[in-house]
């Protein structure tokens, strides 16, 4: 681990006309760290994620990313070509709805291989071997490699999306409600898988979720957002066990006890 952060975010704001998307958000993210962003819907967490992943341009503020050569680059000053290259090599983006992140009409193997081909891999045998390897790592049987994701269950699609993102060995992964819409047993296995992958690969991740249990399982640190602002941030266990901001207290106390 280095003593320099991977991502530095400073005073990031996004306004939709007069409406606030997110307002004055600052934080650092270190390599291998998983940061959860929690809050109710409409609190600006997805806006924040989209700004960080350069899918949206913020109204003001800066975000710098430490490239593989150790140099910090200002994300919003990069050319579109550089941003898109970063997006498909050093970054991953796991959508809540796998259909948004997968090509539903090409096979699972091609979905995993696309990033490899995008960075210039031109050997079919090697691409396929890598795809087989990644499918097994996300617990998809090898004989499903030529099936289209349309034939997959929701949980399998989500695991395929994760494999597709991780195949180029990214250092930072953005996840938007990765377990949304899955039933609890599938969620549990997916979380287990994600936790294993994040640890094994030393990934840094920013996970947006409204599910505090997901945040507790996956993340070391969390930020609580409300009306576009960060109302509380700290170590996940501290925030959940000893919430200080009134809104966090409300959020924590709203968890259903079974």
């Amino acid at each position: 681990m280095t003593d320099e952060p991977l991502l530095r975010v400073s005073a990031l704001s996004k306004f939709y006309g007069s409406r606030v998307g997110c307002d004055n958000v600052s934080f650092d993210l270190w390599p291998g760290e998983v940061l959860a962003v929690v809050g109710e819907s409409g609190s600006g967490k997805t806006t924040l994620l989209n700004c960080l992943s350069t899918r949206l341009l913020p109204s003001s503020g800066t975000a710098s990313y430490r490239m593989r050569d150790g140099q910090f680059r200002e994300l919003y000053r990069m050319s579109e070509a550089e941003r898109r290259f970063l997006m498909r090599t050093d970054w991953g983006f796991v959508h809540q709805n796998p259909a948004d992140g997968l090509r539903m009409t090409v096979s699972a193997g091609a979905n995993v291989g696309e990033r490899l081909m995008a960075v210039g891999d031109r050997h079919y045998g090697k691409i396929r071997a890598t795809a087989v390897d990644w499918l097994s790592r996300v617990e998809i049987e090898e004989d499903r490699i030529d099936d289209e994701p349309r034939a997959f269950s929701g949980g399998m699609r989500q695991r395929l999306q994760i494999a597709r993102n991780l195949v180029t060995g990214p250092r930072l992964v953005f996840m938007d409600e990765p377990t949304g819409g899955l039933d609890v047993s599938v969620q549990a296995r997916l979380l287990d898988l994600l936790r294993g992958l994040v640890t094994d690969l030393g990934l840094a991740a920013i996970v947006v979720t409204h599910d505090l249990a997901v945040a507790r399982l996956l993340s070391q640190r969390m930020m609580v957002m409300k009306d576009g602002r960060v109302v509380e941030s700290g170590l996940t266990d501290r925030v959940l066990d000893d919430p200080r901001a009134p809104y966090t207290q409300l959020l924590v106390s709203s968890i259903l006890q079974v």
């Binding site: 579109e80 070509a81 898109r84 498909r88 090509r103 090409v106 096979s107 193997g109 091609a110 291989g113 696309e114 990033r115 081909m117 995008a118 960075v119 031109r122 079919y124 691409i127 396929r128 490699i145 030529d146």
Partner: peptide, 16 residues
């Protein structure tokens, strides 16, 4: 941006 990885996805599908 010369992003032509997708073209090979089609050829990959053919071989698969």
């Amino acid at each position: 941006l010369e992003e032509y990885g997708l073209m090979h996805v089609k050829l990959y599908e053919d071989i698969a």
